[in-house]
Computed example of a mutant assay.
Amino acid sequence: MATKFLAKINPLNADKIGTSAHGTAEFTIEGDVLDIKIEMFETPANTSHWEHFHGFPDGRDAAVATSAQDVNGDGFVDLPETEAVSGTTMVPFDNAPHEMNIPHDAYPTSDANGHFAYQQHVPLDELRAKFKAVFGTDDLDLDKRVVYIHGVPASLGLPATVAGAVGSYDAHTTLPIAVGKIEAIN
């Protein structure tokens, strides 16, 4: 029998980025496969969108960030500001989630209307092994995680106070644009 999870993804930073990104993320565990389906609407158009689940390695329940997390008062909730309530970036929704390689270019790109759909079948044993190597546990605890969608065009003016650079990727790549709590649905 399959175990299913759903996150309703709602806008974050919408008033600053000019779009209200929203959508859903579905997770189905059946046998040794994790099936991930994400569909997003009204994201910044023609933009690469990093997407991940975030959480706390110690198993605490992660929560979605809100404008209350804008601790420096610059009007943006950036990636570092989400960590207090959402934890750390854990598993990417890219071309190989089980490799848990975060900074690269193999994430979905939205179309001219700001839409994208993502689907991946992930070998659960490989994901759990990598997760254990990185976080010390092989329990994904999906119902204690949150999904973040990131990414705005490089042309969007961001104040110097917006942080979140990862490797050669700047805050335009990592700025959260939408977030949703993962919940068990069966």
Rank of each mutant, 00 (worst) to 15 (best):
residue 1 M to P: 14
residue 2 A to T: 15
residue 2 A to R: 14
residue 5 F to R: 09
residue 5 F to K: 04
residue 9 I to F: 00
residue 10 N to P: 05
residue 10 N to D: 13
residue 12 L to G: 13
residue 13 N to P: 08
residue 13 N to G: 10
residue 14 A to F: 05
residue 17 I to T: 02
residue 21 A to Q: 01
residue 23 G to C: 03
residue 23 G to N: 02
residue 27 F to C: 05
residue 27 F to I: 07
residue 32 D to A: 14
residue 32 D to R: 14
residue 32 D to Q: 11
residue 38 I to A: 02
residue 39 E to C: 05
residue 39 E to H: 13
residue 41 F to W: 08
residue 42 E to M: 03
residue 43 T to D: 00
residue 53 F to T: 12
residue 56 F to H: 00
residue 62 A to Q: 12
residue 64 V to L: 13
residue 65 A to T: 03
residue 66 T to W: 01
residue 66 T to E: 06
residue 70 D to K: 06
residue 71 V to E: 04
residue 75 G to H: 01
residue 77 V to R: 01
residue 77 V to W: 00
residue 83 E to P: 03
residue 84 A to L: 11
residue 86 S to R: 03
residue 86 S to P: 00
residue 88 T to M: 04
residue 88 T to W: 08
residue 89 T to Y: 03
residue 89 T to P: 06
residue 90 M to K: 12
residue 92 P to H: 11
residue 93 F to S: 03
residue 95 N to F: 10
residue 95 N to S: 10
residue 97 P to N: 05
residue 98 H to C: 00
residue 100 M to V: 13
residue 100 M to R: 09
residue 103 P to Q: 07
residue 105 D to P: 15
residue 105 D to V: 08
residue 107 Y to M: 10
residue 111 D to T: 04
residue 113 N to M: 09
residue 120 Q to K: 06
residue 123 P to F: 14
residue 125 D to P: 02
residue 132 K to L: 10
residue 135 F to N: 13
residue 138 D to P: 11
residue 138 D to Y: 11
residue 139 D to N: 13
residue 140 L to F: 09
residue 140 L to A: 12
residue 145 R to M: 07
residue 146 V to S: 10
residue 147 V to W: 08
residue 149 I to F: 06
residue 152 V to C: 03
residue 155 S to I: 01
residue 156 L to W: 04
residue 162 V to Y: 07
residue 163 A to M: 03
residue 165 A to L: 10
residue 165 A to H: 13
residue 170 D to R: 03
residue 176 P to K: 05
residue 177 I to F: 02
residue 178 A to S: 07
residue 179 V to M: 15
residue 182 I to K: 08
residue 182 I to T: 10
residue 184 A to Y: 06
